[in-house]
Amino acid sequence: MPFFEVGDGTRLSYEDYGAGAPMVFVSSWVLNADMWEYQVPFFVEHGFRCVLLDRRGHGRSDRPSSGYDADTGADDLAALIEHLDLRGITLVAHSAGGGEAARYLSRHGAERVLRVAFLASTLPYLKSTEDNPEGIPEAVNEATLAQLRKDRPKWFADRAQGYFATHLGNDVSPALIEHEVRRCLSASPFATAAMFRSNFHTDFRPDLRHITIPTLVVHGVADQSAPIGVTGRRTRKMVPHAVYREYPTAGHGLYVTHAEQLNADILGFLKS
């Protein structure tokens, strides 16, 4: 599998499938390129080129001690796009990957990007502040981070059922849930904590205000990781031209539980 090197010497892994108009998939916090296994075959079969990045500290990429902020994530994404000289891109970003995609557009412009899809993204700003009262109190986030650091495997295992909203009837096998927890645990523990904190403290509202390209926002009403009232619905208001979809029975893991519906919605967005 190919690698490329960014400015600080970090080697990043990526995957490249198919031919045609390029789609660049930006993975969630702690997940890597493998999370898109229900999307890539579908879009390759529909004539698209699918490019997937393992961000630093994730998957097969190097695990440096720095670079887990949104600016570096956006710059690493830009380096991949320039390395492959991709143009006419559709960015497809899940969860914290949405912040990197939004920051990429504000830092590097949309010259190479035609459209962007935010899936269960943690936009626009998670932290509660005086001008962002809808956010989450910092003390709550720090307590959550302390639990994560104390027993990382338990933290992910305890949240797995809610991640897929299995209580709403989503059919996810115990084996698949265990597999996804292992995939989350494959990320560097240092990167896991550093990115968790950075994503919480980063205000992406200015980035969203500058998005003028076609945008798709998809969010699950039952999302426990990125509550829709804090994230998806507010993102829709900040990007009023966006195509917006809510999935009533979806949690954060909608790329698995609602893969068929999600793929169809993204394909319709690509063709619109």
Rank of each mutant, 00 (worst) to 15 (best):
G97R: 02
G98R: 02
G98W: 00
G99R: 01
G99P: 09
E100P: 10
A101D: 06
A101I: 02
A101T: 04
R103W: 03
R103I: 01
R103P: 02
R103S: 10
S106P: 13
R107V: 03
R107S: 11
R107P: 05
G109N: 03
G109S: 13
G109E: 03
A110M: 07
E111V: 13
E111Y: 11
R112G: 15
R112E: 13
R115K: 12
R115V: 05
V116I: 10
F118E: 04
F118Q: 11
F118R: 11
L119M: 09
L119H: 08
A120D: 12
S121A: 15
T122C: 12
T122D: 07
L123K: 06
P124H: 00
Y125P: 09
L126V: 04
S128L: 11
S128P: 06
S128Q: 14
T129M: 12
T129H: 02
D131Y: 07
D131F: 07
D131L: 07
N132S: 13
N132P: 10
P133S: 09
P133E: 02
I136E: 05
I136G: 13
A139E: 07
A139P: 11
V140C: 04
N141C: 14
N141L: 14
N141A: 15
A143S: 10
T144P: 06
T144C: 13
T144I: 07
L145E: 13
A146Y: 09
A146S: 15
A146H: 08
Q147K: 11
Q147E: 04
R149D: 07
K150H: 06
K150C: 11
D151L: 08
P153H: 05
K154E: 11
K154F: 11
W155F: 14
W155R: 04
F156E: 08
D158N: 12
D158R: 04
A160R: 06
Q161K: 09
Y163M: 06
F164M: 03
